[in-house]
């Protein structure tokens, strides 16, 4: 059981993004962060994943009810976001070997499902943006993460890609804490709860 508890989180850049947001996500739960452009969805996602520090407030992380240090959270996390890329000068197979040591049967099955198996030996910078997004999804899920951070996961994906993504999210939901920042109402509907960011306040 993995749990993230956020208490009164606030963040501002040159303008205020949001203030006093509290939430809790545990394994088996999923939360969508929704709101207009510039409302701070990605920033809140980064804060919950300890990629960015909040200006004020506190976040606690627990594994099996035992607190764990914030800086180790990234090792429990799978991230699919525009600000994270696989190595573009390596092939998908080389990326998988870099991260996991070998291409397992699970990896082959997932690549087949994502329709990427036939492209696995091509260097990533030859891929389209949609195929690169599929790679990011594969790399995040192969890690079997305890917490999955998704920032606009359906972006650049075609209809079949979105359908596969939705199926995969539904499959891992019982075993993973999922936090998703999205503008897409169909993606948000996959989650149990929503945090709506509007006018700088989380509702």
């Amino acid at each position: 059981m993995f749990t993230i508890k956020a208490h009164n989180i606030s963040k501002r850049y040159s303008y205020r993004l949001f203030s006093n947001i509290s939430c809790s996500v545990s394994t088996g739960e999923s939360v969508a962060i929704v709101g207009p452009n510039g409302s701070g969805k990605s920033t809140l996602l980064k804060i919950l994943g300890n990629i960015v520090s909040p200006d004020s407030g506190r976040i606690e992380y627990f594994e099996n009810k035992e607190p764990i240090p914030a800086h180790t959270v990234i090792h429990y996390a799978g991230i699919v976001a525009p600000y994270i890329q696989c190595y573009n000068h390596l092939t998908l197979t080389e990326n998988i070997i870099f991260a996991f040591g070998s291409v397992t049967d699970d990896a082959i099955e997932l690549l087949h499902r994502l329709d990427m198996y036939q492209h696995k030996d091509k260097v990533l910078h030859t891929y389209s943006t949609g195929m690169q997004q599929r790679c990011k999804i594969a790399m995040a899920l192969l890690k079997k993460p305890k917490v999955l951070l998704l920032d606009e996961p359906g972006s650049n994906l075609d209809d079949s890609g979105r359908k596969i993504l939705f199926e995969l999210i539904k499959e891992i939901q019982p075993f993973t804490a999922i936090i998703m920042a999205t503008n897409d109402s169909r993606e948000a509907k996959l989650c149990h709860r929503s945090i709506v960011l509007d006018k700088g306040i989380g509702a």
Binding site: Y83, I84, Q85
Partner: peptide, 11 residues
């Protein structure tokens, strides 16, 4: 520059 630092840190 190629946004791979976080990817590396994930593993």
């Amino acid at each position: 520059e190629e946004h791979t630092a976080l990817f590396n840190l994930m593993y």
